[in-house]
């Protein structure tokens, strides 16, 4: 905005590198910048939203083969107490053939507990397979009815338009409970 030249009747067209002016303008910029941050940050999740950012689930009432759905940060999370066969099936797959290659071992902390976010990576529908009688698709995992994506017993995409495996949320397990997020 301001340059060093005085235009009131003075003759100079010279722009003097004015240290005082430069520092003042710099301070002004710092001032404006520091005002911008609170305005932007106020739109970030507020404290009471962050307080609900974790969900704790007690896994002890579950039985082998059972699947439950919990809510975490507004999304469904599938918790699958896998059977031996399902684990074997997941580990027997050659990951080179997968669209999103991932070892089953890398997707679970304890083999029998598969914890994945139940949102299809195609366009966001909730895949079927959680309830008894639901279709599970061709690979024994989950089936998304919206556009026909099939997920396997490790939640990996095997067939259909979805590009990625069902994501694994951050979680920590301790004596029969899991803390998600």
């Amino acid at each position: 905005m301001a340059d060093g030249a005085h235009t009131a009747g003075a003759d100079d067209g010279e722009t003097r590198r004015d240290f005082l002016l430069l520092t003042t303008v710099a301070m002004g910029a710092v001032g404006v910048g520091s005002v911008a941050w609170p305005i932007i940050d106020s739109m970030n999740p507020s404290a009471e939203v962050l307080a609900l950012a974790s969900t704790e689930v007690d896994l002890s009432p579950m039985s082998e083969g059972q699947r439950i759905t919990v809510t975490w940060r507004g999304n469904p999370v599938f918790i699958d107490y896998r059977t031996e066969e399902q684990i074997e099936e997941a580990r027997g797959v050659d990951i080179e053939t997968l669209r999103d290659p991932e070892l089953d071992q890398d997707r679970v902390q304890e083999a029998k507990w598969l914890i994945i976010i139940g949102v299809c990576t195609h366009l966001g529908c909730v895949p079927l397979g959680q309830k008894v009688g639901d279709p599970r698709g061709d690979f024994g995992g989950w089936f998304c009815p919206c556009h026909g994506s099939h997920y396997d017993t490790s939640g990996r995409i095997r067939k259909g338009p979805a590009p990625l495996n069902l994501p694994v949320p951050p979680y920590a397990m301790s004596d029969g409970k899991v803390l998600i997020g």
């Binding site: 005082l20 002016l21 520092t23 003042t24 301070m27 001032g31």
Partner: peptide
């Protein structure tokens, strides 16, 4: 800042 503005 005010001192500097005044000086300018």
């Amino acid at each position: 800042f005010c001192f500097m503005l005044y000086a300018v």
